[in-house]
Write a protein that binds this DNA or RNA. Sequence first.
DNA 1: TATCGTGGGCTAACAGCGTTAGCCAGCCCC
DNA 2: GGGGCTGGCTAACGCTGTTAGCCCACGATA
Lengths: 190, 190
Amino acid sequence: MKVDGEWMSIADTDRRDQIVQVAGELLEREGPAGLTMRGIARELGIKAPSLYKHIADKRELEVALIADGFRDLGDAFDAALAEGGDPIAVISCTYRRWARERPHLYALMNSSPLPQDAPAIATEQRARAMVLAAFSGDHERARAAWAFAHGMVTLELADRFPQDADIGRTWSIGIAAFAHEPNSPKGSMQ
Amino acid sequence: MKVDGEWMSIADTDRRDQIVQVAGELLEREGPAGLTMRGIARELGIKAPSLYKHIADKRELEVALIADGFRDLGDAFDAALAEGGDPIAVISCTYRRWARERPHLYALMNSSPLPQDAPAIATEQRARAMVLAAFSGDHERARAAWAFAHGMVTLELADRFPQDADIGRTWSIGIAAFAHEPNSPKGSMQ
DNA sequence: TATCGTGGGCTAACAGCGTTAGCCAGCCCC
DNA sequence: GGGGCTGGCTAACGCTGTTAGCCCACGATA
């Protein structure tokens, strides 16, 4: 692994962390199909089987990427909130920007169930808790807004909006719809 | 391919249609990892390379599945609307039920950009047009509601809601938020 | 100082993947 | 009856994740 044009000493960081970091770079640069064990190994100057001295399998690596992703998303929320402004607006803007900057990681993070015991669960819940706080602890509206934001991002990344759609405007409408008290919906869908 | 325990005559249906149908069954039964060219061929009693006499590649097959999926979703909207009731409620309930019945096809349909010229575009637009009609032609609210529904479904399928979350209630709140005129959001997100 | 365990590389290999090339049997049409 | 098309086939290529087994260097220990 090269850092500043120099080969990094192996002892500099834990090898497992190196692997996860390289995997993340590879994923964002080449997309999910480019995230291969041989590719990661090549980037590190070793052979693929050696990776298994540090991780159990590819899925464990993906879960580590997911955990890092949610941690970083939470940090982005923190940083943006520190600048002030309406928390709901700040969080929704940050969410969209974050997803557009790391589309492949975003897709990986949200496309499959997480193993129950993983630290990925913890970092995901931290990010979700920040959204909940922005909605003053209203679980229902926070969940609905999260789902809206997630749907908007995935549809945008999958190029599913018409050319002439004003995506920013749709965001505003959606967020506005959840930012205030609901019009007392009757009951629960089955 | 067996039908009612009897080997179906090849002439009974177009071979390409057979391939697509078998692929759809395989996808839903075994998940995306089980959707392999060799698996499809095995199911049909032929060898994998023979499939390429009928389709160009695996992606074309997936796009055919996507087109069928959106067609079927539109049909489900039609059938449900014919029973009467508030169109927005009917469509949202149908959407959720449909997705839960074909989770793998649903994920396939919505996880990647579609080729521009495919008939998949047409069937997708038909389904979207029906949602638009339910929202009385209000593009913005229809799009926002579609995104909300899509987010809800993918989060539910990825098991991302807490055990104790009342998903039906969150649906109701979200749909209610979009069913009425918005509280005039100011401007557009960048 | 000699030995031993271990961490972390390596090669070879396996099964499965999508896909291509090239061959060939059977059928329809002139 | 011969020609071309349809739709099978086998063999093979390069890729994937992963396992088995080997080995070297290093740090601790007797």
